[in-house]
Each structure stands twice: as C-alpha cells, then as structure tokens.
C-alpha cells in the first residue's frame, strides 16, 4: 500500500493506492491520527486502492469516529468496484448510522453496489 498525506489546516488529503493489508494497518493509523490532529476536514482518496482487509477497515472506521468526536469531517472518496466488493464481503455496508455517533453518519452507510 502507498499512502500519501497532503495536509493543510483546512484539509488533509490521504491518497491510498494498492492493496491495504495488516502490514499497513499501523502506518495507516498513524497517518490518519496526524491528519485528524492537524486538519478540520480529512478526505481519504481510495480511487487507486485495490483491496483491503479487515484490519485497515477497522482503522478507517475508528478514525472516522475520532474525527466526528472532535467535530471534524472524515470522508471517503472514489470507492471503486473492487473495494466495494471487499466492503460487502466484510459485511461493512449498512443502512443505519453509527451508534458511537448517535446514529448519524456511518462511514459505511449505503456503500454498496446498487
């Protein structure tokens, strides 16, 4: 996995490419933590990401909660077919919101193929 962080006070853009696996989970957590700490809006660009495993999905999920708790915004961009397939296989997409966020805004909400 390649993970590039471009950050300003306003926005942090994390561009991920390749396959996301357990080896990348710790690195991903650190990148996301610093992005959340330094910017108001965090955008994860997954356009070039191929696949992901559960460990990286957990990290993104946790990062989203952390951002929301701090009143910041974390969004996903460009979830491609193969990535959506991974999300579906993992059972992540859902219709309801996140309990930790009082039922609103789950990162995985409605992220499935029609």
């Amino acid at each position: 996995m390649n993970c590039n962080l471009e950050q300003s006070e306003e926005i942090a853009e994390i561009i991920i490419s390749g396959s996301m696996s357990i080896e990348d989970a710790a690195n991903l957590r650190n990148v996301l933590a610093s992005a959340i700490a330094g910017s108001c809006r965090i955008e994860i660009d997954l356009t070039a990401a191929d696949t992901t495993d559960i460990s990286c999905l957990q990290v993104i999920c946790s990062a989203h909660r952390a951002a929301v708790q701090l009143g910041k915004q974390l969004t996903l961009r460009g979830t491609e077919e193969s990535l959506i397939k991974c999300l579906e296989d993992a059972g992540f997409p859902r219709h309801t919101g996140c309990q930790q966020q009082n039922g609103i805004a789950c990162l995985w909400q409605e992220r499935q193929r029609n």
Binding site: I22, A25, Q58, W108
Partner: peptide
C-alpha cells in the same frame, strides 16, 4: 449469504491495536 459486521467494539484510534480484530 447476508453478512453484517458489528463494529461497536472498535476502540478509539489512539487506544486501538491495529493488529487486533475487534469486529
């Protein structure tokens, strides 16, 4: 098959061990 992942046990970013499964 319909699969629903339960994510409620995933801890906050600073306290999570990224190599553990919480789901």
């Amino acid at each position: 098959c319909r699969i629903i992942a339960h994510l409620c046990d995933i801890p906050s970013l600073d306290s999570m061990d990224p190599e553990r499964c919480y789901t």
